[in-house]
Write a protein that binds this DNA or RNA. Structure first.
Lengths: 145, 145
DNA sequence: GTTAATATTGTAATAAATACAAACTTGAAG
DNA sequence: CTTCAAGTTTGTATTTATTACAATATTAAC
């Protein structure tokens, strides 16, 4: 059924249960969407994508669902531009690159050594993100040709 | 005149001229505000703070001014939450910590080694930011007492 | 001072996010 | 199977950040 091996509806329900989130229809579909398409969608992206499958879906529901999934730690919000929030089902530590030409967002591997961040005595860090902006290879290629 | 040594109105005008930005009243006041108070204000903070001094100031002007200063590289926008953009006159490479308890934003020293970010062949990076979220020492203290 | 170029104002429009009450689901207990 | 209470979802209304734009004002070179 799933486009990707290992991400079946059953798996998604399992994920939800493990995080103590009741596996309702909306939640299953939203999380499944985020896990299969890993394109950092906005609320509206998710809404538009799921509308055909779930005709009764409302934008507010997507907000609620995403809020629930974020609180449960299954999804992490990222604020790259300040206007439209984006969401990522991939919660392991990694960075994000936003191409200023095409708008595409890429996950990037980051290993920040402990001594890179100084003078943080007394601070408790619960979440971190390295954001990079610039031009992606695709767009660099286009400009040159 | 200035609350801080070294940031006089003349200095600010100099900064603007060097960046090829005409030193108009609004621009001088906004940049001077950002350079002296380094509190990552929102557009509305700046507007409210400067209103008494510049009675005719409009919110739109602050947007325009900040837009100009950003394009000129004198100010850098940071998106920490996705709803309200924040701005920083400090454009050297550094990170940001947002306290989830009191909302305060702290500048943090960061030295990210070249090899910390992998697989970025072909990407041109023009801007980067390490964001940290968590609890600041002040709030940690409050909770314990 | 005049003039042309540039900045600013203020209103109106757009769009994201939240609040909330009414309607609907869900799943366990009788 | 039916009922009930708890939890979800909907859809409208509201709030708030941001942008668009035309009218007005300011700036700086001549």
């Amino acid at each position: 059924m799933s486009e990707f091996v290992g991400i079946t509806t059953e798996n998604v329900i399992e994920d939800l249960r493990r995080a103590d989130v009741r596996p309702s229809t909306a939640r299953i579909h939203v999380l499944r969407y985020l896990l299969t398409k890993r394109n950092h969608p906005t609320i509206d992206c998710i809404y538009q994508a799921l509308k055909p499958t779930l005709p009764g879906l409302s934008r507010t529901s997507v907000y609620n669902t995403i809020g629930m999934l974020s609180r449960a730690g299954l999804v992490r919000p990222l604020s790259l531009e300040g206007s439209e929030m984006r969401y990522d089902a991939f919660t392991e530590d990694h960075g994000h690159f936003k191409c200023e030409s095409c708008g595409e967002i890429y996950d990037i591997d980051v290993t920040i050594p402990g001594d890179a961040v100084k003078d943080l005595d007394g601070f408790t860090v619960t979440r971190r993100d390295l954001f990079l902006w610039g031009t992606c290879p695709k767009c660099t290629g286009k400009k040159q040709s």
